[in-house]
Design a protein around this nucleic acid. Structure first.
Lengths: 191, 191
DNA sequence: TTTATAAATGAATAATTATTCATTAATTTT
DNA sequence: AAAATTAATGAATAATTATTCATTTATAAA
């Protein structure tokens, strides 16, 4: 018999926080600014999150979940490793291009000291299926034999930096250059 | 006829700031903490830097200069592209392994909104010789034909993420795995 | 339609952190 | 050795920003 919490507000708050981070850097991530950007009163954020740290942990987890869903989506499951890898690579690459603010949020806060160990455990678990997928390819002699964490670092690290270059406008991503980027990734890990 | 500024203090302040960032994330980068870590009084930092923003810009520039010196050191100049590339790759990889705090400092502040455009211009200029070096290899059909900013992003991005994995202790870098990492880099860009 | 309940507000407050400044300590020059 | 000058100190202050709370508003249930 009362007003209900509004799920769209959670999305607004998340979007506002990420967009502010992209626009102003983490120095621009003030609770009042987030509220303003989300078109809410400052206090409203505290109805949805107990503290700023809570907000950051929730947002980090939500983004990681979204990325995991994207990667593990059935549409990426092809009949051979190369095709599946290609599909997943493009899924992640496009995610980063389309939501660079989310990519940067995760990067900025991973080493921020603001994430709880629970958050780190949960988000690491989300990636396990991807690691299993790579390990299988290694057993089948398709992928270089190296700890999967480094394989994933090679692929993701390169994507992140490429997208960041594209953000600075130092260079422009075209259909051709994106193909190059994919084959850089593939050639780096294939046997 | 008076006391002189002490250059070793600048180094202390720089080291303190980077080490705090590595240990506590950018939330731990408080002027008072930096001073304490550098074994100085809070006010002393303000003799060397006008503001916190000044300190960050100076430190960013100093690290970029150090990296540039490392990369362009004559010892890396070999007779062929592959050998020179290999030498430079290891120089940068080892720099990141040995001074991850510096690597993280640069990464965290590049999109922080705290760097002046002057700082960004200066530090970009420092990398120009490296870009020229890659462009020459492209003309000689040794390296994939893609904007050098993306080539450099591919190499540096992968290194950063690999070093970060190693920092989290999720996986350990051995002589063998480092060799793998190098060949991932080389295979990604070679023609 | 009324009532009960919780969301929403935003100014006020609390907490945090950058910066200043009066004072002291060093050290260079004469 | 004394004087002059500037570095160094750290407590006090100013500025910034997270959080609270008294009040208002919206809405689900009766």
């Amino acid at each position: 018999m009362a007003r209900l919490k509004d799920d769209t507000k959670i999305q607004s708050i998340h979007d506002a926080a990420c967009n502010l981070l992209l626009k102003k850097g983490f120095d621009g991530l003030k609770m009042a600014d987030v509220a303003k950007q989300a078109k809410l009163a400052t206090g409203t954020i505290y109805i949805y999150y107990k503290t700023k740290e809570d907000l950051i942990n929730a947002l980090f987890t939500a983004i990681k979940q979204e990325i995991s869903n994207e990667l593990l989506h059935p549409k990426n499951q092809k009949t051979d490793f190369f095709s599946t890898f290609k599909s997943m690579w493009f899924a992640y690459f496009n995610y980063c291009i389309n939501k660079p603010q989310n990519m940067l949020f995760v990067e900025q806060f991973y080493h921020s000291g603001l994430l709880t160990s629970q958050t780190l455990t949960i988000t690491d678990t989300l990636m396990q299926p991807v690691y299993k997928f790579i390990e299988l390819a290694q057993k089948n002699d398709i992928v270089r034999n190296l700890d999967v964490y480094f394989i994933q670092a090679q692929i993701a690290g390169a994507i992140h930096e490429i997208v960041k270059v594209s953000l600075t406008k130092k260079a422009k991503l075209t259909k051709t250059s994106i193909q190059h980027c994919f084959y850089m990734a593939w050639n780096s890990i294939r046997k």
